[in-house]
Design a binder for these strands. Structure first.
Length: 425
RNA sequence: GGAAAGGUGGCAGAGUGGUUGAAUGCGGCGGUCUCGAAAACCGUUAUACCGGGCGACUGGUAUCGGGGGUUCGAAUCCCCCCCUUUCCGCCA
């Protein structure tokens, strides 16, 4: 959520930012309702002040034996007026809040203006020593490899749950588990995170706090009977750990890393890009979440990307970093880098991680603050999160990159102590 | 699923209709004392919103789980909801 004062004071700047983000401009509506709202508050507060002062005099009048009938009648009228104003006020506030929940975060000044993914900017590429995009044999894709090696079973996943629910089998299941453990261990040992194992179902408040609701409700699975939502990412429970809290400044930055299964409806996206792992309803992801002081958040974003990159470098998987343009930026993000890994069989890059700075957008919704030691006042923190990384897309690149001409898959060195085997055949 | 208890400030914990934003204790911050520290003592210590002021600041309102009601006035009375804890049942 944006600061209403920011909109009040810089409506045109906000308007332009929203347009750059391909979102609907409702600033005029916001300004109008905000104005009404403030007028109502002014009127109601004035009456309440009167009521309070008179009410405190009544016991004294009674004690002094004065007749209070008239005052009581007058105050009754005042109270009725207050009730009326409060009703109107609540109406206005609900309306304002509804709209505010649909206004996206503003892109940071360093974000390139653009319409779509085509306008994203490649920041850098990293390729392992001796890596070549052209290979001597025709690579199998991950679905073919999965079938041949009997490590992935998309058909049976479809039988038991539906399409987009992959089953990992045998060494495939072990490899998946190894990847998760390796990534968490790496972040713990090298990057100073604290491990969190969060709930995979969260309540509506949590989904609002990080910005999935109300706007993206159709994209979320829901367990209506209990009012719970399967999480689309561990970002949701982990960021909400500190919802409605005031953190100590000296504890910042607070850095968590956690694994979760991620559940996404991906409504309306069947067909395109949906082969195998490319788009699934359930996948595994290791997520990094940070709570930081505002002035450090952009430095922390760079570090976050670096933390994710370290994993790929340790695995020796080629990747590139994209800076998303305004039009491709997600609803809550102010700035975002995507990390894409190379898929030899698809002959293209696949998004495996997304690292974002939300500035105070989530913090305002979720009411996450820290106490500024100088001013002694609470201030909103900045929140960031990044995948470190999602295993499904990563698995595509890993299987395809590490395949041999005979159709076997070599296990990356750093994973071998986790898998207990060095080759899948 | 059944039963009971309970939700008050950073924490603990008083408070059952009238200056109660809320006793007291702990914690935090500042000070006195001290070479320094501890102890002791003194002071201070919530958040949000709406106004006024360039600003230090200042006026007002709201907030004792949430919502509604009664009343001139509600932490306190009534109704509904939510949550937590404990016990029983079921269960990995």
């Amino acid at each position: 959520m944006l600061d209403i004062k920011l909109i009040r004071e810089n409506p045109d700047k906000v308007r332009q930012s929203i347009i750059n983000k391909n979102e609907k401009d409702r600033i005029d509506e916001v300004l109008e309702i905000d104005k009404q709202r403030r007028e109502l508050i002014l009127q109601a507060d004035e009456l309440k002040a009167k009521r309070n002062s008179v009410s405190s005099q009544i016991p004294q009048m009674k004690k002094a034996g004065q007749d209070t009938t008239e005052v009581l009648a007058e105050m009754k009228r005042v109270s009725d007026n207050i009730t009326g104003l409060d009703l109107k006020l609540r109406d206005a506030e609900e309306k304002l809040n509804d709209i505010m929940m649909y206004i996206p975060n503003l892109p940071h000044d360093s974000v390139p203006v653009g319409k779509s993914a085509d306008d994203n900017i490649e920041a850098r590429q990293w390729l392992p020593d001796g890596f070549k995009f052209e290979i001597d044999f025709k690579p199998l894709d991950h679905v073919e490899l999965g079938k041949k090696l009997n490590i992935l079973d998309f058909e049976r996943g479809a039988k038991i749950s539906g399409s987009g629910f992959p089953v990992y089998k045998g060494k495939g299941a072990t490899l998946e588990r190894a990847l998760i453990n390796f990534m968490i261990d790496y972040h713990l040992q090298n990057h100073g995170y604290t491990e969190v194992f969060p709930p995979f179902l969260v309540n509506r408040e949590s989904m609002k706090g990080t910005g999935q609701l109300p706007k993206m409700e159709d994209d979320m699975y829901s367990i209506t009977l209990d009012g719970l939502f399967p999480i689309p990412t561990a970002e949701v429970p982990i960021t909400n750990l500190h919802r409605d809290e005031i953190l100590n400044e000296k504890d910042l930055p607070v850095k968590y890393v956690g694994y979760s299964a991620c559940f996404r409806r991906e409504a309306g996206s069947y067909g395109k890009e949906s082969k195998g792992f490319l788009r699934v309803h359930q996948f595994n992801k290791v997520e990094m979440v940070k709570f930081v002081k505002p002035e450090t958040s952009y430095d922390e974003l760079e570090l976050l990307v670096k933390d994710a990159e370290d994993i790929l470098q340790a695995l020796n998987i080629p990747y590139r970093i994209l800076m998303l343009c305004t039009g491709d930026l997600s609803f809550a993000a102010a700035k975002c880098y995507d990390i894409e890994t190379w898929s030899p069989a698809e002959d293209r890059w696949l998004e495996a991680s997304s690292c974002s700075n939300f500035e105070d957008f989530q913090a305002r919704r979720a009411n996450i603050k820290f106490r500024n030691e100088q001013t002694k006042k609470p201030e909103l923190v900045h929140t960031l999160n990044g995948s470190g990384l999602a295993t499904s897309r990563l698995m595509v690149s890993l299987l395809e990159t590490y395949q041999t001409p005979e159709g076997k898959v070599i296990v990356p060195k750093v994973l071998q102590k986790y898998t207990g085997f060095s080759v899948i055949d």
